Simulated scan of single mutants.
Amino acid sequence: MRLTGSGLGCPTWPQCTDASYVPHSAMGIHAAIEFGNRMITIAVAAVAVMTWLIVMLHRPLRTDLRRLATFAALGVPLQAALGGISVLTGLNPWIVSTHFLVSLSMVTLDRDTGAPRRRLS
Rank of each mutant, 00 (worst) to 15 (best):
P93M: 02
S97Y: 11
D64G: 07
P60E: 08
G83T: 00
R62K: 12
V107W: 13
T113E: 14
C16Q: 00
P23C: 04
T41E: 13
G84R: 03
F100Y: 04
M56C: 11
T17K: 03
P11Q: 00
V76R: 03
M56Q: 15
G28E: 07
T17S: 12
L91F: 04
G75A: 03
T17I: 02
R118G: 13
T4M: 05
A69F: 01
V49P: 00
V44W: 03
V22Q: 07
M39G: 07
L104Y: 12
S121T: 08
I29L: 14
M1Y: 13
V47R: 07
W13P: 05
L68I: 11
L74R: 03
C10W: 01
H99E: 08
A26L: 05
V55L: 02
R118D: 11
T70D: 05
S86N: 09
A115N: 12
R117T: 10
L109T: 06
S20H: 02
F35N: 05
V96C: 09
G28R: 01
V47T: 13
L120T: 07
H24C: 06
V47K: 11
A43W: 10
L91M: 13
S25L: 13
A80C: 05
M106V: 02
C10F: 00
T113N: 09
L88Y: 06
L101D: 05
L53M: 15
V44S: 03
D112N: 15
A19Q: 13
R66G: 06
I42Y: 12
M1C: 12
G5L: 00
P60F: 04
G83H: 01
I85D: 08
T51P: 00
L3N: 13
R62Y: 11
R117A: 15
C16W: 01
L120I: 09
R117G: 10
M106D: 05
Y21S: 14
W52N: 08
A26M: 08
L61A: 15
L68E: 08
A48I: 01
W13K: 00
F35W: 15
S86W: 01
L57V: 08
H99F: 03
R117D: 13
V47P: 00
L78S: 07
L8V: 07
I29Q: 12
T63G: 10
M39Q: 10
S25P: 02
D64W: 00
P116S: 13
F71A: 15
A80V: 08
M39W: 10
W52S: 07
D110F: 11
P77I: 03
T51E: 10
L120N: 06
H30P: 07
S103E: 06
P116V: 08
S6I: 00
S97T: 15
A115Y: 06
A45K: 02
F35G: 02
N37K: 02
L109A: 15
Q79N: 08
Q79G: 07
G114F: 03
T17P: 10
D112E: 09
V102D: 06
P14M: 04
I33Y: 04
T70S: 14
V96T: 04
R59S: 09
A26S: 14
V49E: 06
F100R: 09
P77K: 01
I33K: 01
A45Q: 11
R118N: 11
V55Y: 01
L104Q: 07
H58L: 10
R62I: 06
F35D: 10
V22T: 12
R117Q: 14
F35L: 02
